[in-house]
Design a protein around this nucleic acid. Structure first.
Lengths: 336, 336
DNA sequence: TCAACGTGAGAAAACGTTTTCTCATCATTT
DNA sequence: AAATGATGAGAAAACGTTTTCTCACGTTGA
């Protein structure tokens, strides 16, 4: 009926040891009663013949597959990859493997993937995306397995993990203050992004009533434009700029250089994302806010594990702290 | 013994239909003999109660898990993500899910992941990396399942997939010729990379005996330096530059702009990778060679499927063609 | 000396499928 | 009317584990 495999099973071990499969099972799992001599002998034989229990069989028995699904619509991977890596890292220690499902905003594809995962009896599903105010194109409510949302919008009553944008903004302002900056502005992305708004609000709160925030695109080009605007009028120019992402920051730094404004001597710049390809290669290298995405992934992994194993988890939006990565664009050093 | 699940099984369907499980199985799989009326009735009942067969049970029976493992050490994801996405896309159509394993150059971690995958009875493993002349920190030879290498070094006799670097270089040179360029140079990465060497060789072959290739780092900074070098001497300056990646190209374009050299009017630039974040945002946007990584992933997926299903696949290194993505930095348009 | 008990190990059931056999039942043919 | 054949459906085994139950044997205590 079936393709016979060449893998060694518990029956092979039993035969080799001259005992029954139940005895082998108990020997290897340190359960049941038996002469410790027998136990050791069986263990040694099992090791010799290279026996590894078939996880499928155990899953069937335990109704637990030690498998979770990771749904993502971020093929580009800027955010998702570190998150994935954190998830994978946290779960591998618990013997849990991760199904990767790239769904590219295609509802039909998403459904196919979700169905496939459910058929394979995943213990839970982690949904990840590119922004916290957009949801994946598939309804994950009412599934027979727990769901955790990371960096994407969840349904009401679900567990949602994201980076604390306000915290990131506060870290940036605090740093700019610490290196002595007084006229601080915030150049960021479109106000249609919740993240941009949250950061802007926290920025205003930290800087004070006359705080200036300018919204544009998440691009280098907007960084250039913003500098042209800020330096073009007759108002006093800023001495500190907190940028909404590293691309904007790069645009700002380049534009300032072209104007002969020195970074960080004349103006301090702080970016957001710690996207190394930008942060490291910008001259001077960017001091920037890191969202700890890998840690976020790790937390997501452990959370889905909690849920899968029946522990209760407080639902709602959970914001994880950011950290500041100090390079050259802001001045000061790691101590100051 | 076990946590009872609330999932509906074939037994529930059988009970609901008042028949045996074997009859249900045969009805749903369109096998066996039975009154077509019974068959339809069972199908309809199965749909009503929302029955979905437990893939674990089938896997156990068929010795086929419809699951493959994806091993990667490219957490950064520049290359791996499109490859992954292609793999996932190709396999989902065949009901095969993909285990993602991020191993970050850690041999111990890699072993843990490989063991976990084998225990879970994957039908095959795809190994991916960042460069074709480095192997993953784990030995995948002699595994009880087939292995395909994509964009990473394989063991002798294995199936290895990669982009055709020579083809990419030829495409670039051909394009530069087509827009009328005569003095073409190649600014690329370190000659310790096989890819850099392959492209350089193909470049020399296409351009002719006096072709100039300069090796440096894979960075913007090197692009700047290279321009300084090329424009600093008293030799005639190039009118076409083929860059080893998009970061170098971006450095070159920026450096030329600073010098007042116009791109593409005075000099045509072509990059490599089609990394949109660079290619699109450079001014002018980069014409660049795309390695078709997603297609490469798709091929890898179908190949591992072939092997898993017992079809034979020619071993050895298989190079997939590149394509040229036309933007502004080279001049001409899509037609010319 | 016999009952009670502890110890070591195996038989069997269970997890959810699929498939091969077997067996009634009924219709057709001789 | 009896033998044959076709049809529909169920019983059971199998996949590889784990766990519960049962049982034989040997030791201890009265």
């Amino acid at each position: 009926m079936v393709a016979r495999s060449n893998r060694v099973t518990i029956h092979d071990v039993a035969k080799a040891a001259g005992v029954s499969v139940s005895t082998v099972s108990k020997a290897l799992n340190d359960t049941g009663r038996m002469a410790s001599e027998t136990r050791e002998r069986i263990k040694s034989i099992a090791a010799d013949v290279g026996f590894r229990p078939n996880a499928l069989a155990r899953s069937l028995l335990f109704n637990r597959s030690f498998t979770v699904g990771l749904l993502t619509n971020d093929t580009y991977g800027r955010f998702t990859l570190p998150v994935m890596s954190g998830i994978s890292e946290a779960l591998v220690d618990h013997g849990v493997s991760v199904f990767l499902c790239a769904i590219e905003d295609d509802p039909a594809l998403a459904k196919v993937h979700v169905d496939a995962m459910l058929d394979k009896q995943v213990d839970g599903i982690i949904a990840t995306g590119k922004r916290i105010d957009r949801s994946l194109p598939v309804d994950l409510a009412g599934l027979p397995v727990p769901v955790v949302y990371a960096f994407t919008e969840g349904v009401p009553g679900s567990v949602v993990l994201t980076a604390d944008d306000s915290d990131g903004a506060r870290l940036a302002v605090e740093r700019l203050r610490k290196v002595g900056r007084k006229r601080i502005v915030h150049v960021t992305g479109p106000d249609s992004f919740v993240s941009a708004v949250e950061r802007a609000d926290a920025f205003r709160q930290a800087v004070g009533p006359d705080a200036l925030v300018v919204h544009g695109a998440w691009t280098e080009a907007w960084g250039h434009e913003a500098v042209a605007m800020l330096w073009g009028g007759d108002k006093p120019t800023p001495d500190g700029i907190f940028c909404g992402n590293d691309q904007i920051a790069r645009g700002v730094v380049d534009a300032l250089r072209e104007r002969g404004v020195r970074v960080p001597e004349d103006v301090s710049i702080i970016g957001f994302d710690n996207w190394e390809i930008f942060a490291d290669q910008t001259r001077p290298a960017l001091t920037t806010v890191d969202m700890n995405l890998k840690e976020l992934g790790r937390t997501a992994g452990l959370t889905i594990l909690d849920l899968a194993e029946g522990r209760t988890v407080e639902p709602g939006l959970r914001k994880l702290p950011c950290k500041l990565v100090i390079r050259q664009s802001c001045g000061g050093n790691r101590e100051i």
